Amino acid sequence: MTFVKGTSGNPGGRPKVKLADGRTLTDLARDHTEKAVTALVAVLDSAEATDSARVSAATAILDRGWGRPRQDVGIEMKSDEAMASLLEAARKRAIEAKAVPELPAS
Rank of each mutant, 00 (worst) to 15 (best):
W66R: 12
D31K: 00
G22Y: 03
K18I: 08
G65V: 07
G65R: 06
R14E: 10
R23E: 00
A60C: 03
R14K: 14
V17G: 09
D21Y: 06
R23K: 07
K16L: 14
K16W: 09
R14F: 11
V43Q: 08
G13K: 01
G22T: 08
H32F: 02
A49M: 03
T24S: 00
L25R: 04
P15H: 03
V41Y: 04
G13Y: 02
R68F: 08
A39T: 09
G22Q: 08
A53C: 00
V17A: 05
G12A: 12
D31E: 13
E48A: 07
D63K: 01
L44R: 12
D72R: 15
L44E: 02
T33I: 10
N10D: 12
R64V: 02
V55T: 08
L62Y: 00
S56D: 02
A60T: 04
D27T: 09
R54W: 14
L28G: 00
A47P: 12
S56N: 08
G67H: 03
G9M: 15
K18L: 14
L40T: 10
E48L: 14
N10P: 01
T33S: 06
S46W: 06
V17R: 04
K16E: 15
P15L: 03
A53K: 14
K18C: 01
T50F: 09
L40I: 10
V37C: 09
W66L: 15
A29K: 15
R54H: 01
T33A: 15
L40H: 05
L40R: 04
A49C: 11
L40S: 12
D21T: 01
L40N: 03
L28F: 07
R70G: 11
L25V: 03
G67C: 08
A57Y: 03
T59C: 11
G65T: 11
G12E: 09
D45S: 09
R54I: 04
A57G: 02
V17P: 02
R54F: 13
H32M: 04
A29L: 11
D72W: 13
L62K: 08
V37T: 15
V43T: 14
G13S: 06
V37E: 15
P15F: 06
V17I: 04
R30Y: 05
G67P: 03
T33N: 14
G67K: 09
A49K: 05
E34V: 11
E34M: 13
G9Q: 11
G67D: 05
S52V: 06
A36W: 13
P69E: 10
S46L: 00
A53M: 10
V43K: 15
V43W: 14
P69I: 05
V43F: 11
T59P: 01
H32D: 03
G22E: 13
S52W: 05
G22V: 06
G65C: 09
T26P: 00
D21Q: 04
N10A: 06
D27S: 10
A47V: 04
S52G: 05
A57R: 02
G74V: 12
T59L: 13
L19P: 08
R54C: 06
D31S: 08
N10L: 05
T26R: 09
D72I: 08
P15I: 07
T24A: 06
T59D: 08
K35D: 13
